[in-house]
Design a binder for these strands. Structure first.
Length: 921
RNA sequence: GCUCGGAUGGUGGAAUUGGUAGACACGUUGGACUUAAAAUCCAAUGGGCAUUGCGCCCGUGCGGGUUCAAGUCCCGCUCCGAGUACCA
């Protein structure tokens, strides 16, 4: 008798395709439920065991919701633009579209082997012109919109032009990079060119000269979230700052809404925290300082206006536009040297040498707005151009960075908030009483902040101000394999294409490399112009362009005239459950929310937030194995004996290690250099060492799901991935536990079968005991699935199967509901059993078994009895017994006597249906 | 540095509201079945002491505390992971 998973799984996967079991359509008669996975980038390496983890969880949840009568949208697609395919193209000349297509095929096969309930009719591929048409279309909308801070939403750029024509930009409250003001008359007097130039400062998709993260190795610009520790996230190449003309998205306009929107979301605290930090709201004041020898006033931003009297110097960034203006003749050489040095430092150096204090005095002074004192102006690279105004007032007594700087350059440190000891270190806390601060003296920090701002406002030299760390997203990439911008240049000014000219398809190029002049690969394309001969943009969009709105396209994936129809979005609304990795916290998940809010402002989507609930699956780490070679020899010593020799630890392929025991023959064949390896064994075995590391090819610890499916079947893989541990936790992959799940599946199968693998079910009435087992399981599974505790869910199935085996229960009334219960977890197994039990329809729409409390009713409860908090014995008592009787029964119990002997009972705690604790002394 | 997680047997983990710590598995050991292997089944399995039976003591990273009762709550540490990094 054997459970033949290979045939059964094959059979049902085919059945699902033939019957279109997972195809969904709008169905007004049912409530909708939208379960989304973060779609993968189809890499050449195929799936490893870590990828499907989240997909399995979401698949279980989708199937569960379907059993409960929901119309479930559970699509899958591919984030298909990206660097690896392009790098491969550069090496081999193969068009990235071809590589991508092949990889997608492979991914789909692998995914289908796991038995997912995706509706492939809704597949979305970001590199497909049918799809990126709409990415381009949204870009044109962003280009034609500005952000009105008064109405707090995006509006059409024509409305802005109308306002300019009436009032100029004087009264406008907009998210913009425009600094100069102009009147209506001035606006009207401008040339078309000039007007377009001004509008660019308001558009939500805009072009500007900005300092960008340039990665020479990749030959492209990267967004902030694509750079970590001064290196590119993809590839780990160095990144430098460079000023270039680039497209950006004005994400910062939405900073406050992105922050506010999170409150209602059912996301993990850690993820919300990450986004909050990334958005980085800080409330403070903007203050203008007069300059001693110039008309201009220097604007600074501070979160501590209360400490104004402690400002003993000012600092501007080395890139600040006033560096030359403020530099005095005798400081010139020094300043120039410093600025050159600071600019040439790589981002990486600048980051790793944070503690190194450097700077130079300009020779100029500002005038303190309250005291009238002269305040020296310094240049230092700890002040960044990109945040605030690129200039600060330095309060060394209450800011650790200013403190370090003042100490190094011997600048006075004046305490203005009491509470610390500024002779030792700065006192940064926002508690204490103001001193040395004229009219602020005696106030608490919070009050002083308010009073200082009041005074600044009265003097007309300052204002309350909110700043965000969130930067606009740089949207240009100097690469080939991305969406072309729907943009052409007319007299040097960018214009967007009309929807009828979309999609603008990627042109053919002879090589996937920059041109000799250093232009991006698209510049190689022949006749890369509009029909009218205007040159097209040669940059392409970044990876996050296509992934920002893909969840919307799933709702109506084949629509040729619209991004998605109003009917579709009104029905599917938003994503109810989104499962994916936390690594997208500051990238995709911010961009997507921005994208959605923009479309919400346009009235196209119905929910302001796209992802109601979000679950982060933890990473699956690798478990590496090691062998120990005695240095300079070809002798390998077993783990336990390694300390007796001078050894070198070497990674060994986990596929030739079983339960940490090395297959020495396989090892000799593994790599030529080990062909003559000799082994020093322990107990006749070679035991390997192990360690949890990243899952990576180079560490020989990659587990491929295909091999496991071949050996154990998809249902076992599904259950095992869930059984491994909590979904949100990172955990090492260790194959040895899979046997236990495999045994469980076979055991489950055996409940329904007799020796010859022949179905044998009894139609007898179930016993009380059997009903209890079933209903206990129903209850447990319901609770576990709702709190995404899939590991305990699987163990509940195991307990159930163990108990039913013990009871030798093969009754239909028990096993039939159980089959439905397990269907979301092990769909192939469930379908087969369901059919064997005589059903002609797929199990996917079978009604989920209902929990009946009555079956769990007990007449007795087995009380654990503790003495002074230590559990000593159990006592069986009627469940409805009153506290006092319980007390009596416990004290009278035979087992209790030895604990009571010679002691006085001080207190008895009885918690009904929980515990009894007797306090003796 | 800051923010957020986490630490429970040989291993993965369970304990949902403060109430029997170690569910469920893996592994290990012993046994049954078998010519043998596989598969399956049974038993033991946190540490220590006692094994003449009942048993007893210790035990959830460390040190304190609250409580009849703490893995769970509070205070102070240590270590590990993730995010972030001169954000004024």
């Amino acid at each position: 008798m054997e459970y033949n998973f290979a045939d059964i799984e094959q059979k049902w996967q085919q059945f699902w395709v033939d019957k279109k079991t997972y195809h969904v359509e709008i169905d007004e008669s049912k409530p909708k439920f939208y379960v989304l996975d973060m779609f993968p980038y189809p890499s050449g390496a195929g799936l490893h065991v870590g990828h499907p983890l989240g997909y399995i969880a979401s698949d279980i949840y989708s199937r569960y919701k379907r059993h409960q009568g929901f119309n479930v949208l559970h699509p899958m697609g591919f984030d298909a633009f990206g660097l690896p395919a392009e790098q491969y193209a550069i090496k081999t000349g193969t068009h990235p579209a071809i590589t991508t297509e092949e990889n997608i095929e492979r991914y789909m096969t692998q995914l289908n082997n796991i038995g997912f309930s995706f509706d492939w009719d809704r597949k979305v591929v970001t590199s497909d012109p049918d799809y990126y048409k709409w990415t381009q279309w949204v870009f044109t909308k962003l280009f034609s919109s500005w952000y009105n801070n008064a109405s707090d939403k995006a509006e059409d750029i024509h409305l802005l032009v109308q306002i300019f024509e009436i009032n100029g930009n004087i009264k406008i409250a907009a998210a913009c990079t425009q600094e100069e003001t102009f009147t209506a008359d001035e606006w009207k007097a401008m040339s078309e060119q000039e007007q377009q130039g001004i509008l660019m400062n308001y558009r939500l998709a805009y072009q500007s000269h900005t300092a960008v993260n340039w990665c020479p190795e990749l030959g492209t610009v990267l967004a902030n979230d694509e750079v970590k520790d001064g290196l590119s996230v993809r590839g780990g190449h160095p990144v430098v700052k460079k000023t270039m003309k680039q497209w950006s998205l004005r994400v910062s306009a939405y900073a406050q809404r992105l922050l506010d929107g999170m409150e209602k979301l059912d996301w993990s605290d850690s993820l919300k925290e990450m986004q909050k930090n990334w958005i980085g709201k800080s409330v403070g004041a903007t203050v203008f300082f007069r300059l001693e020898e110039h008309e201009e006033k220097m604007e600074i931003f501070t979160t501590r206006p209360d400490t104004l009297f402690g400002a003993t110097f000012m600092v501007i960034a080395p890139e600040h536009e006033w560096v030359t203006m403020l530099t005095k003749e005798d400081q010139k050489t020094e300043v120039e040297e410093y600025v050159v040095w600071a600019k040439n430092r790589s981002e990486r150096e600048r980051m790793t040498e944070v503690k190194k204090v450097s700077g130079v005095f300009t020779g100029s002074y500002a005038i303190h707005p309250f005291s009238g004192n002269r305040v020296p102006i310094w240049i230092a690279d700890y002040v960044l151009t990109s945040y605030g105004t690129g200039a600060i007032m330095a309060v060394p007594a209450h800011d650790s960075r200013d403190y370090a700087f003042a100490k190094k350059f011997d600048i006075p440190i004046v305490e203005v908030v009491s509470g610390g000891d500024i002779s030792v270190e700065s006192y940064d806390a926002k508690t204490g009483v103001l001193v040395n601060s004229d009219f602020l003296n005696g106030m608490k920090v919070k009050q002083a902040v308010g009073e200082a701002i009041k005074k600044l406002r009265a003097l007309g030299i300052g204002e309350k101000q909110i700043n965000f760390r969130l930067r606009d997203a740089i949207f240009s990439r100097q690469r080939y394999w991305g969406e072309p911008f729907p943009v052409y240049y007319k007299d040097g000014m960018p214009q967007v294409l009309n929807i009828k000219d979309l999609p603008l398809e990627l042109p053919a190029v002879d090589k996937y490399l920059p041109t000799e002049k250093g232009e991006p690969p698209l510049a190689r394309a022949e006749n890369w112009n509009t029909k009218d001969g205007y040159p097209l943009e040669v940059d392409t969009m970044p990876g996050f362009a296509g992934s920002s709105g893909y969840y919307l396209r799933y709702m109506d994936p084949t629509n040729q005239t619209q991004y998605f129809s109003p009917e579709a979005v009104n029905y599917w609304q938003d994503v109810d459950l989104y499962i994916g990795g936390a690594e997208h916290a500051t990238g995709h998940l911010i961009y997507s929310r921005f994208w959605n809010k923009f479309l919400f402002d346009l009235g196209m989507v119905v929910k302001e937030e796209p992802f109601k609930k979000l679950v982060n699956q933890g990473m699956i780490q690798g478990r590496s194995n090691f062998v120990y070679r005695i240095k300079g020899t070809n002798q390998f010593v077993s783990f336990g004996l390694r300390k007796e020799y001078d050894v070198q630890r070497i990674h060994v392929d986990i596929n030739i290690v079983d339960n940490d025991v090395l297959d020495t023959e396989a090892f000799r064949k593994w790599q030529p250099e080990f062909a003559n390896a000799e082994f020093i064994l322990e107990d006749g075995k070679y035991t390997c060492g192990w360690e949890v590391e990243k899952m990576s090819k180079s560490l020989y610890n990659v587990q491929n799901p295909d091999e496991l499916i071949e050996k154990y079947g998809a249902d076992t893989l599904r259950l095992y991935e869930m059984f491994l541990g909590p979904i949100e936790q990172s955990k090492p992959w260790d194959t040895k536990g899979i046997e236990g799940v495999f045994r469980f599946i076979k055991k489950f199968w055996r409940l329904f079968h007799k020796q010859e693998n022949e179905l044998e079910l009894s139609d007898a009435e179930p016993t009380k005991e059997e009903l209890k087992v079933l209903h206990k399981t129903i209850k447990k599974l319901h609770e576990d699935i709702e709190r995404f505790s899939f590991n305990t869910g699987v163990s509940a199935f195991m307990i159930c199967a163990n108990e039913l085996s013990e009871l030798k229960c093969n009754k239909r009334v028990i096993l039939e509901p159980l089959t439905v219960l397990i269907a979301p977890y092990a769909p192939h197994l469930a379908e087969e059993l369901w059919q064997l039990m005589g059903h002609n329809e797929s199990i996917v729409d079978a009604t989920y078994p209902e929990f009946n409390e009555a079956h769990l009713k007990e007449s007795n409860f087995s009380y654990p009895v503790s003495f002074n908090g230590k559990m000593r014995f159990m006592i069986d008592l009627p469940i409805d017994m009153g506290k006092e009787e319980v007390e009596k029964a416990v004290l009278a119990a035979e087992e209790a006597q030895r604990w009571l002997e010679g002691k006085t009972v001080r207190k008895i705690i009885v918690v009904p249906k929980r515990i009894v604790n007797v306090v003796v002394g």
